[in-house]
Every structure is written in structure tokens, then in C-alpha cells.
Amino acid sequence: MSAPIVHGGGITAAAAAFGGRPEDWLDLSTGINPCPVALPDIPARAWHRLPDGHLVDAARFAARDYYRSGEILPLPVPGTQSVIQLLPRLLRQDGQAPMADDRIAVVSPTYGEYARAFTSAGFAVDAVGDVAAIRAEHRLAVVVNPNNPDGRSWPAETLIALHDRMKAAGGILVVDEAFGDTDPALSLAAQAQNLSNLIIFRSFGKFFGLAGLRLGFAIARRDILERFENWLGPWAVSGPALSLAASLLRSDVSAIRGGIGERCAGLSAVLTGAGLRMAGGTALFTLVADARAVDIYTHLCRHHILVRKFDYAPDWLRFGLTPDPAADRRLGEALQGFER
């Protein structure tokens, strides 16, 4: 079993190391909408009863319309992390261990749990720098679009061509669109019903600011979704989560996108004002490249501000969005106090 990966979050550990109460820290270490949406009413029965089929159906139909997935009804899952863990099982033949030549491609650097899940299951994982490096011998390829943490993106036609190449060789393409809500034009969901060897993962909590709900959706052909559903077992997603999804996915999200855009502009102004070089990102986070990244990270922690550092790229820091102008000022003042 490979070692656990350090992700964003971890305010409790940061407060233990640098002091202060966790609730007083400014957490900029994750790519989550910092202004969670107002929660619609959740019927009492959603809390009281096990999540019955009508709740699942309501969420699936709402997700179909929101993601524009056509004939495919997206499968609600308890966070897309849950189905990432199932991908190696999808490739196993009759429960057998992977063969030595069962290779997986992951366009990297990216979310580390993909490589970890396959490596832990005995697959050989190739970290490739671009989709053009994915070869016919790769049984499955992972592309995060837009990518985390650098924000790289690939147009739909490029990924459709990759899918067709992989399908011809009997392979599967996984496209993780966890940060896709702010740029719907990048999504392959509308083409998914015609791409039989494609699996799309969508995050719910990042865009709506409800990461603690642990909810995501998988979009793929029916037999793949049925296998995921069977492996996850009954009642995998809670009734309240299904109820919220059915409501929010049918709501007008233009104000949410507008609010994220405003917060993104606020963060960019702070980072630019501090003389930091923005090396990439999405509407929900910004990647900074700086040779002093480790020292900046420690300095911000001493001011009880947590950002994301990377063991594989010591000159990178990822800044999530601040929740309001006051937090912009707090971050800006802390950065201005850094000894250059």
C-alpha cells in the first residue's frame, strides 16, 4: 500500500503546528467555492427515512439536465473519490491480478489519488505530460480537465479523438471534470452518450461550496454505472444529499458563477500586488510559482493562513479563493509582510 497523499485542507494539523483556533484560520488550501450557496429546504423525511428510489431518480434526472448528458442518467456517488477507488476493479478480469503489461496513463502532475489507486492495485502507472503521450497499450487513461493544480485544459475535440484512439485499442478514457462547472464548454458530458468507452466524473461540492456533503456524479454507459452502483452498495448517498442535488442542480447558477468570478478577480489582484507570478489555475484556484514558496508557506501559516504546497514541486503554491474583500486584505497584508 502506497503512502497517503497530502491534500488541501488540514486546518486542525496546521493549527496544532502554528497555533490558533482552527475556526480562526483562513483556509485557502482547497479549490472550493468559499461562499457556499444558501441551502434549500430539505424535507424531514429525507433525514428520517433511508434514501428511497424516488430521491435517487430525482437527483439523477436533475443531474442529466444540468450536465446535458442526454440519454445517460448520471450516477450519484458519495464523492468522486469513492469511484476513483473502483477504477482498478473495473479493469480486473474475473477478479484476477493485473498482468505485468497492464499499463495506466495519468496526465500529470494532477490529483494524486488516481496514480495511488492503480499502483496500490498492482497496475503500472505512467505519468505522462500530455494527452499526445497516451499510447495504444494503455488500458485506461486519466485526464483531469481542467487540470488540478495547473489549470491546463484540453478542448473537447482533442479528448474525443483520444477516446476514439483508446476505444480502437480496447481502452477506457476517464475525464475528471471536478472543476468543470465554471467552464461548461470544456465538458464532454453532452457527447458522452456517443462515446462508449468514456467515463466522466463530476464534483458537486466544489462549485456549490458544499464539499462536506461528499457528493459527486459519474457519467458513463449503463453497464459501467450499474457496476459502480453495485460495488458501492445500497444507500451510498444520503437522502439529504440527494434532496439538495435535485434542488440545486435545477436552480439558476448564474449568480454562483458571477460570485466565483468576483472572488477570483479579488485573489488575482492580491497576488499581483504582492509581486507573485501566477503560473496557472482555474476560476476556483490560482497556482503560484516562486523559488521562495516554502518560506512563503511558513510565513502565511504563522499568520494563520493555509495554502497548498506540493512535495513534488517545491516552488509551487496553490491559493484557493478568499470568501470576501476583508479576507483579501488579510491575505494581502500577510504577503506584504513577507521578507523578500
Rank of each mutant, 00 (worst) to 15 (best):
P51N: 08
I256W: 04
G205F: 00
I199G: 03
A44M: 15
Q336W: 03
L244R: 13
R263W: 11
T182C: 11
F204A: 06
A334F: 03
S251P: 10
A63K: 09
E113K: 05
T119V: 11
I42F: 00
S268Q: 13
H54E: 12
N230D: 12
L140W: 03
G273T: 13
I296A: 06
S120E: 12
I199A: 07
R64D: 10
L331W: 10
D130T: 09
G320A: 04
A97I: 08
R329T: 11
V6I: 14
L215W: 06
A169K: 03
I84R: 00
A121Q: 07
R49G: 14
P323A: 02
V270F: 01
S247P: 00
R21H: 07
T110D: 08
W316T: 08
W231K: 08
F201I: 08
S29Y: 09
A220G: 10
G8Q: 02
G112C: 10
A14Y: 15
P74N: 03
F18N: 00
P40V: 15
D57R: 15
E229A: 15
A16Y: 05
K167R: 14
T298N: 12
E23S: 12
T286M: 10
V128P: 01
N194M: 09
G258T: 13
R89V: 15
A255S: 12
D295V: 15
I172C: 01
Q193K: 03
R277N: 09
E262M: 10
N145P: 03
R139D: 00
P22M: 12
R214G: 11
V288L: 09
A105Y: 02
F208P: 03
D150N: 11
A192L: 02
D328G: 04
A100V: 08
I42D: 02
A16S: 13
R139V: 01
A16G: 12
D101C: 10
A236R: 07
L284M: 11
W154D: 04
V56N: 07
V253S: 01
R263T: 02
A100M: 14
Y67Q: 05
I200P: 03
Q96H: 08
R152Y: 03
S69L: 03
R302W: 12
A161G: 11
P98Q: 10
V270G: 00
T286A: 06
T298K: 15
R45Q: 14
L140S: 06
G129P: 00
L28V: 07
I42C: 06
D27E: 13
L26M: 14
L215E: 14
E23N: 07
L276F: 08
S268Y: 09
F18H: 07
F285M: 08
L242M: 11
E177T: 00
F204G: 02
Y66D: 05
D223I: 11
S29K: 00
F18C: 02
R21S: 15
D328N: 11
E71N: 13
D130M: 08
C35S: 08
N33D: 04
G266A: 06
F61Q: 15
L26I: 09
A279P: 01
T182I: 08
V37Y: 07
A100D: 03
A105Q: 00
A220Q: 05
L267H: 00
R221Y: 12
P98I: 08
W231Y: 11
R214N: 12
T158S: 14
G239M: 12
S69K: 02
S108M: 02
Q85Y: 11
L210A: 09
D57C: 14
E229Y: 07
P22V: 05
A169W: 12
G233H: 05
L317Y: 02
P184H: 13
D176R: 02
Q85S: 01
